[in-house]
Simulated scan of single mutants.
Amino acid sequence: MNHAILVVKVISNPVYLTYKEYQVIEIKVEFPVSRQKNSGKELTLLLWSDHQGDFVKYYKVQDYLIIEGTLILKGYKTIENKAKIIVKRIYPFLLT
């Protein structure tokens, strides 16, 4: 199981997707601190059910969030690593 807890910064507006009868929101985020040069900086969040409404209602671009969810890697054998996280819990993160 690939459980992850991360602090991320929202960098784009949500994109609404429909899969069969389910509604999903896809959001691009990035890590707020610089990392190794060859590592990926961006992730995609997938929000289902109640998290969709909460995100649209309370969060916007440039907000920092604490994300808890399951990590999915696509294309790990190719140059383009596509990391996605299915969000289980989402919390606001305040920087002072």
Score class of each variant (00 low, 15 high):
residue 2 N to F: 10
residue 4 A to N: 02
residue 4 A to K: 12
residue 6 L to C: 07
residue 8 V to K: 05
residue 9 K to F: 01
residue 14 P to T: 11
residue 15 V to T: 15
residue 17 L to N: 12
residue 19 Y to A: 08
residue 20 K to Y: 09
residue 20 K to M: 11
residue 23 Q to G: 13
residue 24 V to I: 15
residue 25 I to C: 09
residue 27 I to D: 01
residue 27 I to H: 02
residue 29 V to F: 04
residue 30 E to L: 10
residue 32 P to V: 13
residue 34 S to C: 02
residue 37 K to E: 13
residue 38 N to D: 15
residue 38 N to G: 14
residue 39 S to F: 09
residue 39 S to I: 14
residue 39 S to T: 14
residue 41 K to A: 02
residue 42 E to Q: 14
residue 42 E to K: 15
residue 44 T to S: 13
residue 44 T to C: 05
residue 46 L to W: 03
residue 46 L to C: 03
residue 49 S to Q: 14
residue 50 D to S: 14
residue 55 F to M: 08
residue 55 F to L: 11
residue 55 F to G: 07
residue 56 V to G: 00
residue 58 Y to P: 00
residue 58 Y to T: 04
residue 59 Y to M: 06
residue 59 Y to N: 04
residue 60 K to C: 05
residue 63 D to A: 07
residue 63 D to P: 05
residue 66 I to Q: 12
residue 67 I to W: 03
residue 67 I to Y: 01
residue 67 I to Q: 03
residue 68 E to I: 07
residue 69 G to Q: 03
residue 70 T to Y: 04
residue 71 L to D: 00
residue 73 L to E: 11
residue 74 K to T: 06
residue 74 K to L: 11
residue 76 Y to F: 13
residue 76 Y to C: 02
residue 79 I to Y: 04
residue 80 E to I: 12
residue 85 I to N: 04
residue 86 I to Y: 05
residue 89 R to D: 09
residue 92 P to Y: 04
residue 94 L to C: 01
